[in-house]
């Protein structure tokens, strides 16, 4: 092997990579918050009596689960663009990941809703709570406990999925920064190895943090 590794310039770029990691985390958190909200709505849709709402749920879930995430991001970036809705690469990445996460989480939430006994809802209703109140104070807290593990899993997935942004021209997330620097310096291996370490650290941070959080929240 006649190749000398040049780690110095890559290590000098550490601050930029770290900022990229912050942007990556920001995209992941943003799309997870949106995704969880949509997933709750979709899970409720799947239980409703309206055929239209159930249809929306099943179309969303099947599309999100049966096409590649990259295709979904492409569809938002190029496809919606031709409908006259031009989104930048950052928002279209967020929309794409949100779509994907919502589809996967909706299934988990649907299973979680089934695990909450119907009698509790009826008891709360007969105590005089309104339906939204029952959902927020009785169902949701228990639901979050059941789906906590799927949510953390999906959060790690969301972080990994942000790397798709580079394909639609995002330049300020971790993958985008790394790509730009490696194109400028031709030190592909060094930069991408550093990026891999950062992604690994982010994923570990999320799983360990979730473990600590779970122990604090669900100790009884």
């Amino acid at each position: 092997m006649n190749y000398t590794f040049h780690w110095a310039p890559a290590l000098k770029a550490w601050p930029q990579l770290l900022w990229g990691a912050v942007v990556t985390l920001e995209i992941a958190v943003l799309s997870m918050i949106l995704g969880v909200m949509i997933a709750i709505a979709l899970a409720l849709f799947s239980k409703s009596n309206s055929k239209l709402l159930r249809g929306i749920n099943s179309v969303w879930v099947e599309l999100a689960r049966n096409t590649p995430a990259l295709f979904q991001v492409y569809m938002v970036y190029f496809g919606l663009g031709s409908l006259g809705l031009r989104l930048d690469s950052y928002p279209s990445l967020v929309v794409g990941i949100t779509f994907n996460c919502a589809g996967y989480l909706a299934e988990a939430f649907r299973g979680g809703l089934r695990a909450i006994p119907e009698t509790q809802v009826r008891a709360a209703r007969s105590l005089g709570m309104s339906a939204p109140k029952v959902f927020i104070f009785i169902v949701l807290p228990q639901l979050f406990r059941i789906v906590f593990y799927p949510i953390t899993n999906q959060m790690v997935w969301a972080i990994l999925m942000t790397s798709l942004g580079v394909v639609v021209g995002l330049t300020n997330d971790l993958m985008g920064v790394t790509q730009q620097m490696s194109v400028v310096t031709f030190r592909t291996f060094e930069y991408f190895a550093l990026a891999a370490i950062l992604y690994y650290a982010l994923a570990k941070f999320v799983t360990l943090g979730a473990g600590v959080l779970a122990r604090r929240l669900f100790q009884y």
Partner: peptide, 20 residues
């Protein structure tokens, strides 16, 4: 499992060309 597949592709691809 914790590194994006995209980065794994790029890394292994560059290892392939570094080691010839």
């Amino acid at each position: 499992r914790s590194i994006p597949l995209l980065i794994q592709f790029v890394l292994i691809n560059s290892v392939n060309s570094l080691l010839r």
